[in-house]
Structure formats: C-alpha cells, structure tokens
C-alpha cells in the first residue's frame, strides 16, 4: 500500500459518499445517470465475488462491502425512493453497446488463458474480475453522455465526477510505483485504467477551468 493507492481508494470512497449524500439531501437524483449506476453495481458484484473465495485483508474486505452497499443504496434511492426525479428522458445511452463488447473481451483476454469449464470457481471468478475491469473503464459513459445531452451538471455532481475520475488516475501512479518498487504489474488493469482515465480528460478540463473558479459546469453550446 502506497500513498497513491490509498488516496485513490479514499477518492473513490469520497465519490460514492458524495453521490449518496447529494441524492439524499436534495431528495433528487436529477442529473445522475441510472444506467451508469447499474453498470457500477455490476462492476462491484462481479469483481468482489472474491470476497467469498480469497481473503486479502480486513481493509480490503471492508472497502468492498462498503462499495457494494453504497452502490445498492444509490440504486434504491434512484429507482425506488426518488424515482420521480430520475432524468430518464436524458439517460438514453444504450448500455448493450458497452456490455456486449466488454463481455466478449473479458472471455477472450483474461489472465487464465484456458477454456471455460463449468464448475471451475477460480476461473469463473477470474473471468468475472476481468469483465469488471473492462466494464468499469467505460461505465461512466452513460453519465458523461447525460451531462453532454443536458449541457450542464450541478456543482455537487461535478465534485462526484471529479473524485470518481481522480481515483483511477491515482491508481495509474500507484501502478508505476509498484512496477518500480515491487516489480508488480497487471497489464489488463493498466490498459483499462488508462482508458478509464482518458475518458474523463474532457471533464477534468471543464472542472478545472469552471467549477474550481466557482462557476457552474455548463458546456459550450
């Protein structure tokens, strides 16, 4: 555990807390993509299956449970409690365009390189982990699509996106660190992490030039 990994995790934690609090306090999930939230829930469920197969540390298990819990809470708030405020007319990204390629890629390019056999738990967990890494890298697209469609985002939503985007960027530095000091690298995670971070670049630029200077995030017409 190095400082970049820890700040990355804390940034991720902050993002999901900001999101739940935003919805809870404003009693509204306007401006938030339910489709991105469904994809994130799928990411957590498929990646953290190893809670049952592989104990790493109390910290690791705790964070995984918090991510799954917060993700479920967000879905509950969006699709049940504050359903009336959900922006479904703008949340029109077709998630099958992400799910189908990501599933195929997860089956083809993973760490096992052996044919899928029914009943092989380790292999299934590994393939699902790979699927989750690929899916996470693009899961924000429906949200970015929604922001571009409405042309604006509430400041609190911008903070959420900033924290969520920074998390993988900090992980990238963590991976450089681990490569130099531990000789550890995971090519699948690195490539997906780069893709994930690059997708946020346009947003990072808007955040720095507008939100930090106290203006609302509004896209140029």
């Amino acid at each position: 555990m190095n400082i970049f990994r820890l700040t990355g995790d804390l940034s991720h934690l902050l993002a999901i807390i900001i999101l739940v609090l935003k919805i809870w306090k404003t009693r509204s999930c306007a401006g938030i993509s339910g489709k991105s939230q469904i994809l994130f829930a799928l990411v957590y469920f498929t990646r953290y299956l190893d809670l049952f197969t592989n104990y790493i540390s109390l910290y690791n298990s705790f964070m995984k449970i918090v991510f799954i819990g917060a993700s479920l809470a967000t879905l509950y708030l969006m699709y049940m409690k504050f359903k009336a405020t959900y922006d479904r007319n703008h949340d029109t990204f077709r998630i099958e365009f992400l799910l189908i390629p990501v599933t195929l890629l997860g089956l083809l390019v993973n760490h096992e390189f052996t044919p899928l056999e029914i009943g092989d738990t380790v292999l299934v967990v590994q393939v699902l982990w790979t699927f989750s890494i690929y899916l996470e890298s693009v899961a924000i697209l429906p949200q970015l699509f929604l922001v571009s469609k409405t042309g604006e985002a509430e400041t609190i939503t911008s903070h959420y996106l900033m924290a969520l985007g920074s998390y993988r960027a900090l992980y990238l530095i963590n991976w450089i660190w681990r490569y130099y000091f531990e000789g550890f690298y995971d090519l699948i995670a690195i490539v997906a992490g780069i893709v994930q971070t690059v997708l946020y670049c346009d947003f990072f630029y808007l955040y720095i030039t507008r939100v930090i200077r106290g203006r609302a995030l509004r896209l140029p017409a």
Binding site: F67, E112, V122, Q126
Partner: peptide, 10 residues
C-alpha cells in the same frame, strides 16, 4: 486451475 493473480486492489 489455480490463479496466480491475487487482486489486492479495489
């Protein structure tokens, strides 16, 4: 199959 990849990251 025994995986040699332990995912300690989140």
């Amino acid at each position: 199959t025994k995986s040699d990849v332990d995912h300690d990251e989140l």
